[in-house]
Design a binder for these strands. Sequence first.
DNA 1: CACGGTGATTACAGGTTCTGAAATCACCGT
DNA 2: ACGGTGATTTCAGAACCTGTAATCACCGTG
Lengths: 188, 188
Amino acid sequence: MGRWPAGTQERLQEAAIELFTERGYERTTVAEIATRAGLTERTFYNHFADKREVLFPDQDRFIAEVREAVGTAPAEQSPLDAITVAFTARSSWFDQRRDAAQRRRHILDAHTDLREREWAKLAALGEAIAGALRTRGISEPAATLTATVSVATYQLASARWLADPQHATLGHHLHASFEDLHRTARTW
Amino acid sequence: MGRWPAGTQERLQEAAIELFTERGYERTTVAEIATRAGLTERTFYNHFADKREVLFPDQDRFIAEVREAVGTAPAEQSPLDAITVAFTARSSWFDQRRDAAQRRRHILDAHTDLREREWAKLAALGEAIAGALRTRGISEPAATLTATVSVATYQLASARWLADPQHATLGHHLHASFEDLHRTARTW
DNA sequence: CACGGTGATTACAGGTTCTGAAATCACCGT
DNA sequence: ACGGTGATTTCAGAACCTGTAATCACCGTG
């Protein structure tokens, strides 16, 4: 037990999501978020690099995990299979947070600023995967192309997962989307 | 002849590139850019939505042209070929501005903010191409996947073009990169 | 030629984001 | 008891960006 209540970052994140949902992203100031979390504006910036970052709390860890998983996948696995497995292995984490993901997506979709940040995170994910593929002996440009198309497929699966009225698992949609990729790539 | 000297946007762009090169992007204020162009800060914002946008002057036009070209390509052309042609047809415009592109790239590479904006523009390009493909009867998810992989290939070609000590044309690198894409896709 | 409309630019005020530096102060180990 | 630790706070300020109203040379029209 420290001097202050625990879970500062989480409280800031929850306060931010609440306020963004109530008033919208632009009509919410960082000071308001901090106050609702019982903190000051400056403390917000001690925990998040900028206002947008509060909506991308676990992205960097996710990217690092995927990089690790792809880099250490069995040698006999094809690059695309290794990536598919890496994503699928982390899909239940998302399944357990579907509602939060929905709310987050609605906020993101409404603001170009935020989608810009999302694209930056996805680009970082692609770069991480490309690096992992290179350690597996895949050379350029195959590494980058494979990584980029994998991220696009991941996005596709994610969109289908959130849009699915049947609430099928992300793993299911990942499988279906990578199948679609294989099918589509044959036409190229 | 209007009341004011012509080419306001161009002057702002040139002033911005100069100052970013001299002092760096972060150490240059919008007010300084405007002053060097003989204008005020407020006028800068009448021409550009924000500070970053001054480095992406022709992107929106380029995206619109590519969308148009892909949408009206001969029906017998494959999607990927139509896109390749659309890019190649605009490559000489870039060849004539290689030096400016080099300087711009150096500035972009040094700042995450700016690469974020670049990714946003590339995402918009991908979305435009996907839309054009859908008007050609390509259905999802093939349209989005094809568009995304095309943009990735375009980026690859662009990077090779700027890095090439031989100064081969962008068209040459586009051809080579799309060849690489075909080769790589066969392994998926 | 007078005159009012046009439209790019400017002046001004102000909110918000983000940063640096120094101070606070309950907790913790010694 | 006591000093170190480190998350938080306070404070000051630069820079970004926006809304609003004013300016005023140019231009077409009567």
